[in-house]
């Protein structure tokens, strides 16, 4: 009986429940926005591609659009062309290939390239986050470092990564370090920064009263760090990890560009632009976006679980 009494009039009106749920949620706004973007994209395909010779002798608007949406090497491919290419180069291609050395990842499959980039991204992310936290801890605990280190950290990010990436690749290559590690170093170079900034803020976030409380207990510096500063920094850590993981991905892709790497999303972008395969470029870009979204979603999940265990309000 009490459950009936607790129902609000809105919940009681069953016929509208589904629609109300949709309206309150994010689904309808997201779908609407996606539909608008797709419509504008399809409409833009003709003006963007109109100078191509294939369209020169096509008459009539409907015919011209039909042709513009199925060009082999368009300036701007249509969304369905990208999706078709994505499907063909992932599910439509064998992921594993038999060679003399046994089964290896097939370089014709886009997922192979995604994996190459992801592994460099994750390696760079781990190095960057570790470095970022270590710097933040040092800055928070050693007052002299705050003034001496911070300008260098900020300056490091004002150098365009496109300029410094080839230097890192060549320098590490000359001492025999090739493959995943140089790319991870470029990732780490980008991704440590938001973590350092976020964690300096987070580790200094407990107010004077909470710090005084630890003093009245005669707590050691380590105890104050473990029991107060570190847990207090968690919300800011996760906020910076989300920024950090997405620029780790950017760093790994940029790291694949300068040397004409054999594999990876960056290599795919490079070969696509070399051969004028715009559909391939776009599908690699979409793959990069999907990867970034997945990585950020993973961090968001970890954030939710951690903060929930730490008693955050639901």
């Amino acid at each position: 009986m009490s459950s009936v009494a607790l129902q609000t009039p809105r919940e009681a009106a069953a016929p509208h429940r589904v629609w109300d749920g949709l309206r309150r949620g994010a689904l309808v706004p997201v779908l609407t926005l996606t539909a608008i973007i797709l419509a504008v994209w399809y409409l833009a395909c003709l003006p963007m591609n109109r100078d191509l010779p294939q369209l020169a002798r096509v008459e009539g608007l409907a015919n011209r659009y039909e042709a513009a949406w199925s060009l082999e090497r368009p300036v701007l491919p249509a969304p369905h062309q990208i999706i078709t290419e994505l499907y063909a180069s992932t599910i439509g291609t064998r992921l594993l290939r038999e060679t003399a050395d046994g089964l290896v990842l097939n370089p014709r499959n886009l997922l192979t390239h995604a994996w190459v980039t992801i592994s460099a991204t994750l390696a760079g992310f781990v190095i960057g986050v570790t470095l970022g936290i270590a710097l933040a801890v040092a800055i928070v605990h050693v007052n002299a470092l705050r003034r001496s280190l911070m300008p260098w950290i900020v300056a490091s990010q004002s150098i365009p990564i496109l300029a410094i990436a080839p230097i890192i690749i060549v320098a590490l290559g000359s001492v025999g370090i090739v493959g995943l590690l140089p790319k991870a170093v470029i990732s780490a170079y980008l991704s440590f920064f938001p973590v350092t900034i976020g964690m300096v803020k987070g580790l200094t976030s407990p107010d004077a009263m909470l710090l005084d409380l630890m003093r009245t207990y005669n707590a050691s510096g380590t105890q104050t760090f473990v029991k107060l500063r570190w847990p207090a920094a968690m919300p800011l850590l996760f906020a910076s990890l989300k920024v950090s993981i997405s620029i780790s991905l950017v760093g790994a892709i940029v790291g694949e560009l300068p040397t004409g790497a054999q594999a990876g999303i960056g290599a795919r972008l490079l070969s696509g632009s070399y051969y004028g395969q715009t559909v391939q470029i776009w599908s690699a870009l979409v793959m990069a976006a999907i990867l970034a979204a997945l990585l950020v979603a993973l961090i968001t999940l970890a954030e939710k679980l951690t903060l929930k265990a730490m008693g955050a309000r639901p």
Binding site: L210, D212, L213, T216, N218, K227, L228, A232, M310, G311
Partner: peptide, 28 residues
């Protein structure tokens, strides 16, 4: 640790349960 200090605000650690907050000095 001869005295206990109560501040103007409760100064509880939000990520600790009530019990864990009371146990904080004992952990230290």
């Amino acid at each position: 640790r001869q005295y206990g200090y109560v501040f103007q605000a409760p100064a509880l650690y939000p990520w600790r349960t009530v019990e864990a907050n009371v146990m904080l000095p004992l952990e230290v």
